[in-house]
Design a protein around this nucleic acid. Structure first.
Length: 198
DNA sequence: AATGCGATTCTCT
DNA sequence: GAGAATCGCATTT
């Protein structure tokens, strides 16, 4: 049983772009009764709140769905997309500033059998395909809004959280356009998707 | 390897 | 009632 040092409130309370980039290489961890699922974060997107046309909280829009974006940093924001897939986000910036980072891709580290079962796919050894999209990783981790939306990932008893990895010094990050937000007019071209290369 | 399309239900107007 | 921070399968190169 390995010990993982959880990312705390101060980590998420900072500037969204800083948090997004620093999440690359960290661990996303889900503890279940059958074992622990661990993946290394490879790709994220930053959503910049009231000023960002791609963000659900653009112009401080507050609805039943988006209200958790105004919670404490470290809170999980999970919503359903296309009627079938969930997307996992973590809230950033000080409380009441509705910004978030979308987790787009992780690399499977631990609990791979659990991920395969959750995905309900028969697979060879194509590990990376298990969690290389926001909907896929939620399936592999069995993350739903019914269970985790509004949960505090910084709480000591949280079963879904982020943790430190050993520091990587030659981390290569590329900045790209975000995906699936063509409605966001000029903001759709902002380079707010960050990806770890090797 | 690249492209196209249908799936499916929640959320907001 | 429309449309959505996507995926998997089928089809074609």
């Amino acid at each position: 049983m390995t010990f993982y040092k959880r990312l705390n409130r101060e980590f998420f309370s900072r500037n969204t772009i800083t948090v997004a980039k620093e999440l690359l290489g960290k661990y996303l961890i889900r503890e279940t009764e059958k074992g622990t699922i661990v993946g290394e974060i490879k790709e994220v997107e930053a959503y910049l709140g009231s000023e960002d046309k791609a963000c659900h909280s653009y112009k401080n829009k507050k609805t039943e769905r988006t209200k958790v974006m105004y919670e404490k940093p470290g809170t999980l924001y999970i919503y359903l997309i296309y009627g079938m897939y969930h997307c996992l986000n973590v809230i950033t910036e000080p409380e009441a500033i509705p910004c978030a980072v979308l987790i787009r891709q992780v690399y499977p580290i631990n609990g791979i059998e659990l991920m395969i079962n959750n995905r309900k796919i028969r697979t060879g050894k194509n590990f990376k395909n298990l969690t290389d999209g926001p909907g896929k990783l939620c399936m592999a981790y069995n993350i739903t809004k019914y269970e985790f939306n509004g949960e505090d990932s910084c709480a000591n008893d949280s079963k879904l959280f982020f943790a430190y990895n050993k520091e990587v010094f030659d981390k290569t990050v590329v900045a790209l356009k975000r995906i699936g937000i063509n409605y966001a007019e000029e903001d759709k071209d902002m380079l707010l998707r960050f990806k770890l290369i090797k």
